[in-house]
Design a protein around this nucleic acid. Structure first.
Lengths: 349, 349
DNA sequence: TTGTAAGCGTTATCAG
DNA sequence: CTGATAACGCTTACAA
């Protein structure tokens, strides 16, 4: 037999289609007795509403797009997805993750976004947006929610982690451990700058200044331009070389990400420097790998970020006006074994 | 202005709706000149097809469900998702990940699956299915694809990693390193056994036998029953205690997962046993953390598994008959620093 | 190659 | 609280 439709259920229950629709959706006022009849009939016929038909008739697709840069298997994205899913799924929404890599693909995607009728809202995570794209965003007529993304004004709502505050915590830790020479280590910063890295650099410099460091004892160490394929290990080697050959070798370093921090530590050990005895290292993220590496790090919580973004999305969808459309998450310092007191003596007596 | 519909495009292009539909989907024969006209009109009106309407009219939803047990942020699931997405997205399919935890939720979900008309296929990853559920699967009238799941016969297609072959590699490695006492370490195995763990236990025992080990020098060490909240560290402590208090202390151990292997190593170090000098440890998965921990492990590739599953899905969707509906992936041994030659002397001279 | 017209299975409006 | 009935926007025979 072909699948049952709402008409079959209506006939079996002895009511109209409209009533079936109302009863099954649980909205509108339907007499309890009627509802039971309908539910029973639906059950007997193994009937469920067709999303496509509902969407077409109601104009609501009950689908929400989660757009990421980078793979869905990356720690940050996977956690955001999980968070978004956790709050949206119970409300009956499907979440359709997708990701884009590369400028071209991104342009194409953004160009057709405003025309898209296939979702009720879109959550955009971790993108670097140029002016054109930001403009395109504003002409989308569904809610657009940003996660860890600059240009708040282009979004109906957004959540992000406070990179500045995070770096401040890192710098303060190093200071209170007595480190007189500190550094921020990161990857090459391209012209179309990576949002979070950039904020972290600035945050580091700001915090350094506020803690009494100056250009001579707080430095930024970044890799040179390199191809995509350049491994973290090579980058780490480059960074270690720069640090060790600097007139003011840092004894405490904040690193852009956990991943790079771990690579850095490996290289330091290869150079027979002890962590944290000779040099303290702080990561950023607190991904799974941080715990394994016993890495002191600044934790951000993408899972919570995702949940938060989804809750905002839901409010927007209900037509509510957000009192606080742009929220930010306070990162927390996680102390482990890669930081310690500054070495007392200079490396070379 | 309200959104343009296909009728508007048809009018502007001076053709019929049917032609617009054909032109825009790129299927069917449409004169190149006509197609251009249509595309131009669509562009001018910022028109894109509505998925809901297409789905309703055609009966194809262009959506594929990926059902996981456990969170979408877990290493395995996130990678399967990424793989599935990579091959399905270019074909125009949306992939809607979802996950279920708990028997109840699972039962509900499976009960309504057969009625579901809201997807064209469903990919089910890493579930433990009971008889009822397996039966329910067969009555779904869309393709059902399994990933790392037993009960092949309930699926139209499936992919899985060969846990037996994986464990065999681990055992062979230990043997060739001269280990005379080996063990498999894992979590408590509940009645509704976890599929892969179970296979790994069996695989270990089989391989042990084939390599000349017997009950006295190849043992299974598992934790006792415990609540969900029981941490890996406590489990590891329990396992180490069991191993060290055994009359034939193993010098080489295969562990269920990387995660547990790493916890085990930490505990071993706490007990002042050196890895790999005193005891060799092999993990399973090769997740990110394995590399950080320099863990020798047996690599499975969930990303590839996802891609494979998606390709099979695509074929099924095209109505092709699969010559090999059930494929399996060969895991590969990754040598790192937690395995080495068996210690020459007995721990106590 | 293109046009005509009949659905696809709901929801929503408006009466009753 | 319930029932008719008109959308919703597209696809697909079938015809031309």
């Amino acid at each position: 037999m072909a699948r049952a439709t709402i008409a079959d259920v209506a006939k079996l229950a002895g009511v109209s289609q409209a009533t079936v629709s109302r009863a099954l959706r649980g909205v509108d006022r339907v007499a309890p007795a009627t509802r039971r009849k309908v539910e029973e009939a639906a059950e007997r016929l193994s009937f469920t509403l067709s999303k496509s038909a509902s969407a077409l008739a109601s104009g609501r697709t009950m689908r929400i797009i989660l757009l990421c840069s980078g793979g869905l298997n990356e720690w940050f994205n996977a956690n955001v997805l999980q968070g978004v899913y956790e709050v949206l799924a119970p409300e009956g929404y499907d979440v359709c993750p997708s990701f884009i890599c590369g400028r071209d693909e991104m342009n194409r995607y953004f160009a057709r976004l405003p025309k898209d009728r296939n979702a009720d809202a879109i959550i955009i995570a971790s993108f670097q947006l140029d002016g054109t794209q930001r403009e395109q965003l504003t002409s989308i007529d569904m809610p657009v929610i940003g996660v860890n993304i600059p240009a708040e004004s282009s979004f109906d709502a957004s959540v992000c982690v406070d990179n500045f505050s995070g770096m401040a915590k890192g710098v303060c830790l190093l200071k209170s451990l007595g480190h007189e020479h500190i550094a921020f280590a990161g990857d090459y910063i391209p012209g179309n700058m990576v949002y979070s890295t950039n904020q972290r650099v600035e945050g580091f410099l700001e915090a350094a200044e506020q803690n009494g460091y100056d250009e001579t004892n707080a430095s930024i160490v970044v890799g040179g331009e390199h191809p995509e394929s350049y491994g973290k290990a090579r980058l780490a080697a480059e960074l270690v070389a720069k640090m060790l050959s600097s007139p003011n070798r840092p004894t405490g370093v904040c690193v852009e990400t956990d991943q790079l921090a771990i690579a850095l530590i490996k290289e330091l050990k290869r150079q027979h420097l002890r962590v944290p005895d000779d040099i303290s290292v702080i990561g950023f993220d607190d991904a799974d790998i941080a715990e394994v590496a016993d890495l002191t790090t600044i934790r951000q919580n993408p899972l919570a970020l995702g949940r938060l973004a989804a809750r905002q999305t839901l409010r927007l969808l209900k037509g509510e006006t957000l009192e606080e459309p742009h929220e930010s998450q306070e990162p927390v310092l996680v102390l482990r074994d890669t930081t310690g007191r500054a070495p007392l003596a200079e490396p070379i007596g």
